[in-house]
């Protein structure tokens, strides 16, 4: 464990809490892509199958449970509790365009063909594209609530911190997880234009609105 990974996990946790706070306080999930949240729930479900079979540490187990809970509570709030505020007509990204290539790739490129390993690989590839429906929705509506931009910032920051974690682990323990690193780079690149807008607009107190 290193500081980049701890900060990354905390940034990830903060992002999920920010989203839950936004939906709970505003009693609305306007501007949130339910499809992205479904994909995140799928990412955690397929990645944490070893939750009970492969004990790493208390921290690891607790964080996996918390992440799974946050993901499913968020999906529940969007598609059930506050479903009247869910603007489904703007959440139109075709999930099959993401799932088909990700499923294909996880069978083509993985570390081994065991079911848990292929599912783990699927979750890594899926996570790198899971935010696309959300970013697509924002580009379609042309704006986003400020707390939603904070959510996206910390969500993007978490994987950027993981990149630093992988550099650190390569230097210190010669650890190299190629699938995670390549997917993490792709994932972080998808956030770049959002990061630019976040720094140039939101941090200057303006509302995030796309030209």
């Amino acid at each position: 464990m290193n500081v980049f990974r701890i900060l990354g996990d905390l940034s990830h946790l903060l992002a999920m809490f920010l989203l839950l706070v936004k939906i709970w306080r505003s009693k609305s999930c306007a501007g949130i892509s339910g499809k992205s949240q479904i994909l995140f729930a799928l990412v955690f479900t397929t990645r944490y199958l070893d939750l009970f079979s492969n004990f790493i540490s208390i921290y690891n187990t607790v964080m996996k449970v918390v992440f799974l809970l946050c993901a499913y509570v968020t999906v529940y709030m969007i598609y059930w509790k506050f479903r009247k505020t869910f603007d489904i007509e703007n959440d139109t990204f075709r999930l099959e365009f993401l799932l088909v290539p990700v499923i294909g790739l996880s069978f083509l490129v993985n570390y081994s063909y065991t079911p848990t390993e292929v599912l783990w690989t699927f979750s890594i590839y899926l996570e790198s594209v899971a935010i696309l429906p959300q970013l697509f929705m924002i580009s379609k509506t042309g704006e986003a609530e400020t707390i939603t931009t904070h959510y996206l910032f910390f969500l993007g920051l978490y994987r950027a911190l993981y990149l630093a974690n992988w550099i650190w682990r390569y230097q210190t323990e010669n650890f190299y997880d190629q699938i995670s690193v390549v997917s993490g780079v792709v994932q972080t690149i998808f956030y770049c234009d959002f990061f630019y807008l976040y720094v140039t607009k939101v941090l200057k107190g303006k509302k995030l609105s796309l030209p």
Binding site: D50, N54, I56, N60, T114, Y162, N165, D177
Partner: peptide
Amino acid sequence: ADLSTSHDEL
């Protein structure tokens, strides 16, 4: 580390 079995990251 042999990655194909235990992934220790979240």
